[in-house]
Design a protein around this nucleic acid. Structure first.
Length: 596
RNA sequence: GGGGGCGUAGCUCAGCUGGUUAGAGCGCCUGCCUGUCACGCAGGAGGCCGCGGGUUCGAGUCCCGUCGCUCCCGCCA
């Protein structure tokens, strides 16, 4: 048995050829005498005809075919009779008239249709993932992911990067995300951790003189999941020596260009725009702004400093800010939508949500009676208020006010899209570098400074002297790559001198002995001629989800897990035997008597 | 850890303020059918209404709990 062609391959120019095809029965159209089969493999569909006049044996056997039977067919390519050409299929001008049929394996009736048209529930798809992946859309996603992976590898290879594999069995670094732990058999009570990223190894590769490293790196985080977060995921991990931020931007912009060209045939413009963290928060209320639409947030702190409206005045007196945005054309918001926005604002930490509907030439609002003419004039001017607009406010400390209004902005955009008042083209890609993040943020719970990104991020040179005096003003050489309002990558120029590193630990009040036990080997390495270096990691699954136009990264991962981190197909996580636990020196709490 | 949505035939879903024998489309099975491609026609099978408890004369429907899927908040250095 040897197939000669794929099912998406045959054309009119192949007419007369003897061919052999393998594949799955996509649909069967049995006319009693003549039988048509759409034969499917990963490359496409071909119509196979079983005609009793041409070959009675094969025709007889074909009546037994059912959906998803795996079959082998031999026959001859012929052009379809006039009037029976199917213009919807690339192979629609031809058909294969069969003289031999072999059923390689019959199939039970599948639990759901193998089709892109009917959407089956997620749990059933995951339980029978091998069938789900037969659906043309999913097969296409797998293939596109492969093609983009190849583009990434070729790109980095051309630029002289080395693909270096780093260990999966690593050491626990409890500073960051919760880790998956792996118990050690040889060292009772000790554990490895699966890497949440190869961060330290890639920096050590720079110490090792690799100079340019990349890896399609598997990473693991034991945190709660989202549509764009899986417990294990893939990063395009990059690190370079003797560079500064501009080099990273250029290399990554070239990479994105290559990925988009490969996947979509699109030429995306570079360089990408850049925005400071301050600007992003002030204008969009987010450190990953969606710049595909405007609706920017505007500061009104000074305008309401002496306002009659106590909520605003009080916030300003307490050192907070008043911000507002104009949801253009959303005065039509229903009571329910206003309530939903208010609830959302509250869930993000607001005490309430003030609003003004501009309808019939009037400002319809529970709070407008507190506003004087100057305040109204300021609002009108700065927000360009017109008939039909909806104005929304947030008053809080700067960070909170920005974030609350930023979320409200996104929700309004969603509503406006539903009502057709805002249109975002599906093929629009707004890339953006967000830069100048604060190096450290003050953690109220622990009452100490913590790294915004990670503790190896270098400060901007001119800010470094302020580390001890004006800590909050120190900017880090950190950068995030944002696409359409979602973070698809982030990285930084690293600290490469032990004394500066120690200073950061000191400012963060990390005791020397803890720093030593956790990062000692790492800091030590920096005493042996460490080159200046920096890097970035891209969320490859997220990028692929954007490229295939899917809202969830599950659609670009062959075997993903559920929102509760289980695998419905293999039923994992699962039990282990008492013997396994014993070998690993593990006893499960409250479960000692449980038989294996 | 918290909040929202969903769970009814193999699949997708309908089932009103509780009220006879729980429906539809697709799929499946049987028969007929030689140019279909959403093939057609006729007939048929198929239900622990997620699970457990409660309220009630009576529960798919109301209440409590629980499990699963999903979206979001927290979390993700």
């Amino acid at each position: 048995m040897k197939r000669t062609h794929h099912c998406g391959q045959l054309r009119l120019t192949d007419e007369g050829k003897a061919v052999a095809l393998t594949g799955w029965v996509h649909v069967r159209r049995d006319h009693g005498g003549i039988v048509f089969i759409d034969l499917r493999d990963r490359e496409g569909l071909t119509q196979v005809v079983f005609d009793p006049q041409y070959n009675p044996g094969a025709a007889e056997a074909s009546h037994a075919l059912r959906s998803e039977f795996c079959v082998f067919v031999e026959g001859r390519v012929r052009h379809r009779p006039a009037g029976t050409i199917n213009t919807k299929l690339p192979t629609g001008e031809v058909e294969v008239i069969a003289h031999k049929l072999e059923v390689l394996n019959p199939a039970e009736t599948p639990p759901f249709e193998i089709s892109d048209d009917t959407l089956t529930s997620e749990d059933l798809r995951l339980q029978y993932r091998y069938l789900d992946l037969r659906r043309p859309a999913m097969a296409r996603n797998l293939r596109l992911r492969h093609q983009v992976t190849m583009a990434v590898r070729n790109y980095f290879d051309e630029l002289g990067f080395l693909d270096v594999e780093t260990p999966m069995l690593f050491k626990s670094t409890p500073e960051g995300a919760r880790e998956y732990l792996v118990p050690s058999r040889l060292y009772p009570g000790k554990f490895y951790a699966l890497p949440q990223s190869p961060q330290q190894f890639k920096q050590l590769l720079m110490v090792a003189g690799v100079e340019r490293y990349y890896q399609m790196a598997r990473c693991f985080r034991d945190e709660d999941l989202r549509a764009d977060r899986q417990p294990e995921f893939t990063q395009v991990d990059v690190e370079m020596s003797f560079i500064d931020r501009e080099d990273i931007y250029a290399v990554m912009e070239g990479l994105m260009k290559r990925m988009w060209k490969t996947a979509l045939g699109r030429d995306i413009p570079t360089p990408f725009p850049r925005m400071t963290f301050q600007d992003a928060m002030n204008r969009f209320g987010s450190d990953k702004p969606d710049t595909r639409f405007a609706m920017e947030t505007v500061d009104f702190t000074e305008d309401f400093r002496a306002s009659q409206f106590k909520v605003f005045r009080g916030t300003v007196e307490a050192g907070g800010v008043v911000k507002a945005l104009n949801a253009k054309g959303f005065a039509c918001a229903t009571q329910g939508q206003i309530e939903a926005l208010t609830e959302a604002a509250k869930s993000f930490g607001a005490k309430g949500l003030a609003w003004i509907k501009v309808e019939g030439g009037k400002w319809n609002s529970p709070i407008v009676k507190f506003f004087n003419d100057a305040e109204k004039a300021a609002l009108t001017a700065k927000l360009k208020i017109e008939e039909g607009d909806l104005i929304l406010f947030a008053a809080d400390q700067w960070g909170s006010a920005c974030e609350i209004l930023g979320r409200i902005r996104l929700l309004c955009a969603q509503y406006l899209q539903q009502t057709g008042k805002l249109a975002i083209p599906g093929d629009r890609y707004d890339f953006l570098w967000v830069v100048d993040f604060p190096l450290l943020t003050f953690d109220k719970e622990q009452s100490r400074w913590m790294s915004s990104h990670h503790p190896f991020t270098a400060p901007v040179e001119e800010d470094a002297p302020l580390l001890e005096t004006d800590t909050h003003r120190v900017r880090g050489k950190h950068y995030d790559l944002v696409l359409n309002g979602s973070e698809i990558g982030g990285g930084s120029i690293r600290i490469h001198k032990p004394d500066l590193q120690q200073k950061i630990f000191d400012v963060c009040e990390i005791p020397r002995e803890i720093a030593e036990s956790r990062f000692g080997y790492f800091i030590k390495a920096f005493r042996f001629g460490t080159p200046p270096h920096g890097g970035i990691a891209l969320g490859f699954d997220r990028i692929m989800a954007v490229l295939v136009g899917s809202p969830s990264i599950r659609d670009v991962i062959a075997f993903p897990k559920t929102a509760k981190a289980s695998d419905l197909m293999t039923q994992s996580p699962g039990d282990v035997t008492a013997r396994q636990l014993k070998d690993l020196h593990i006893r499960v709490a409250g479960d000692e008597a449980k038989p294996a």
